Amino acid sequence: MGVKTEEAALVEEATKKSGLVWVNGRALWHGWAGGGLCVVGGPGEQPLPGLVDGGAATVTVRSKDKGGRLVTWTGKAELLAPRSEKWDAAVAELKGRRLNAPDGEHMVERWARECEVFRVVPEGELLEAPGTMPAGSGAAVPVATPATTRGEVPAALPRLLARRRKRA
């Protein structure tokens, strides 16, 4: 990893402890194994946004206690070959974190047969870290719409509602 030791420790610890990360802008559940973030996707699993073997990925990690952005880092995605040593290590971590799997004990076989397991290894400098966060919220601008909110409440409405309650 091309970052300082304290930055590498921040990336690893924050990613390990967070139950959710954003990879290329999409929230994913994950694990940490072999020095990288591990995710599984495919039929019956989460979609993996733009992850390709050898491609770059941007990972944003939230703080476990506050839930806000803690660190954003870039990494190189690696598609792990089913039943390889790296795949086995990643799956061992991921299977304990997978909630409500439709096939329980057969989940690992399904992953090997139908799914993709990626490991994203941190590379390069951190994009965001404590002390260097952008001032803006990062929220997307709402889409323009012709829909409107209801106008003002008619002055007589509270009295009408009060009468109905008395009758009941």
Rank of each mutant, 00 (worst) to 15 (best):
L48A: 08
A92K: 15
K166P: 00
L28T: 08
P130F: 01
A57N: 04
V23Q: 04
S63I: 05
G75M: 00
T60W: 05
A33G: 04
E7P: 09
G124S: 03
A135L: 04
L99K: 15
V121I: 14
A135N: 08
G131W: 06
L48E: 11
V59D: 02
L160K: 05
L20K: 10
G55R: 03
R159E: 15
M107V: 11
R83A: 03
E128R: 04
P130W: 01
E13R: 15
L28G: 08
M1W: 06
A81E: 15
R69N: 11
E6C: 09
W87P: 03
V71M: 08
G44D: 03
L28W: 01
V52L: 05
E93T: 13
V108S: 04
G151R: 10
G104N: 11
R97N: 06
E105P: 12
T58N: 00
K86R: 08
E7S: 14
E105A: 13
L51E: 09
K64D: 11
R69C: 11
R165A: 14
G42Y: 02
G124D: 02
A27N: 15
K17R: 13
P130M: 13
T58M: 08
A147P: 00
W73H: 00
R165T: 12
R119A: 02
P146M: 06
A135G: 01
A92S: 14
V121R: 05
A14N: 04
H30G: 00
V153W: 08
G36F: 02
G19F: 10
A140H: 08
G34D: 02
G36P: 06
L160C: 03
A155E: 15
R163K: 14
H30K: 12
W29E: 07
G2H: 13
N100R: 14
E85M: 01
P154L: 06
S63K: 02
G41R: 02
R98S: 04
M133L: 14
A112T: 10
K76E: 15
E78R: 13
T5Q: 06
R164E: 15
A156R: 10
F118S: 09
A56W: 09
V143G: 08
G50W: 00
P134Y: 01
L10E: 09
A89R: 11
G2K: 12
A92H: 05
E109C: 04
A135V: 12
V39G: 03
G136D: 15
S137I: 00
K95R: 15
K95V: 12
R83I: 04
L20Y: 04
W111P: 05
W111F: 03
K166V: 14
L80A: 03
A81L: 14
N24W: 03
P49A: 09
L10R: 10
G131E: 05
A156Q: 08
Q46Y: 05
A14G: 01
P158R: 05
N24L: 07
R69L: 13
V3A: 15
K95I: 08
G50T: 04
L51S: 10
T148L: 13
P142Q: 07
A56E: 13
L161S: 13
E45A: 14
R62D: 06
G2Q: 09
W29R: 12
